[in-house]
């Protein structure tokens, strides 16, 4: 089976600093994987490299068996890659429905211009919007402008934007950032309920949440992959404790 995502020796340097160092990773379709690591470990940089915002200094990226190392951000999106941001990047002046519409239009439109968009296609897009709103728990907020949403709802919409149409691999950058415990529970349930059509990679500082949602955990430290395993293995790994809690943290 072709992998959803395959990284071959990805390295990224900024001047003299190596943010990501020789990372190899393989992700199967529908697999859910957590990317852990302390601040500055290179997690978001790795996301940016996969998404195409940053070109790797060396290494190769394959999406669904296709080499996309030199592809633009948009070209990767058309192949099913989506991402969310640590800090919500929503269209504040547009309604929830319009936000989700753009989320469905961009990837589905394959970058074509949509001036004279057939009515059937439009109706179908709006159905996708309704479905997506339902999946992220915003079905009764469709007409609300995004700026009027609560922080928790904004995080939900952030994920909704990435679900869009035909997503096959979603990179979630700290989906629960800044959420209250209650909102966190809502979001965890929501993520659990997502269809297995898409593989997920999730950066998350909340260990419990990451471990509850994924079947595989990858730990990054100083840009390098230092541990990999099931949530249970990782939770017991003394090396991971050291990375997270500093030397002697296991005591």
């Amino acid at each position: 089976m072709t992998a959803a995502l395959q990284l071959h020796g990805i390295t990224r340097q900024f001047g003299g600093v190596t943010a990501v160092s020789n990372v190899d990773l393989r992700l199967e379709p529908g697999e859910r994987c957590a990317l852990l690591g302390p601040n500055g470990a290179g997690k978001t940089t790795l996301f940016n490299v996969i998404a195409g915002d940053i070109t790797p200094s060396s290494g190769r990226i394959e999406l669904f068996g296709e080499d996309v190392t030199r592809h633009t951000v948009a070209a990767r999106v058309w192949r099913g890659l989506r991402r969310t941001y640590q800090k919500s990047a929503l269209f504040d002046q547009l309604s929830v429905a319009e936000n989700l519409f753009l989320g469905a239009l961009g990837p589905g439109g394959r970058g074509h211009l949509t001036v004279t968009h057939g009515l059937t296609a439009q109706r179908q897009r709006w159905r996708v919007v309704e479905r997506t709103a339902d999946r992220v728990g915003l079905a009764d907020r469709l007409m609300t402008p995004a700026h009027a949403l609560s922080h928790g709802e904004r995080r939900q919409l952030e994920i909704g934007l990435a679900l869009g149409q035909e997503s096959r691999l979603i990179l979630l950058d700290e989906p629960a950032a800044g959420l209250s415990p209650d909102e966190r529970t809502t979001l965890t349930e929501l993520l659990k309920g997502l269809s297995r059509d898409s593989a997920l990679v999730m950066i998350e500082h909340d260990m419990d949440m990451a471990l509850a949602l994924t079947e595989r955990v990858v730990v990054l430290s100083d840009g390098a992959l230092v541990a990999e395993g099931t949530p249970d293995q990782i939770a017991d790994d003394p090396m991971v404790r050291e990375v997270y809690l500093g030397a002697g943290g296991s005591a």
Binding site: A51, D53, V73, A74, V77, W78, R82, R83, Y85, A89, L90, F91, D92, Q93, L94, L102, G103, L105, G106, P107, G109, R110, G111, L161, G164
Partner: peptide, 12 residues
């Protein structure tokens, strides 16, 4: 409003 996000959604 958000050219970067639009790019990440696959718009040209």
């Amino acid at each position: 409003d958000r050219p970067e996000r639009m790019r990440a959604l696959g718009f040209r």
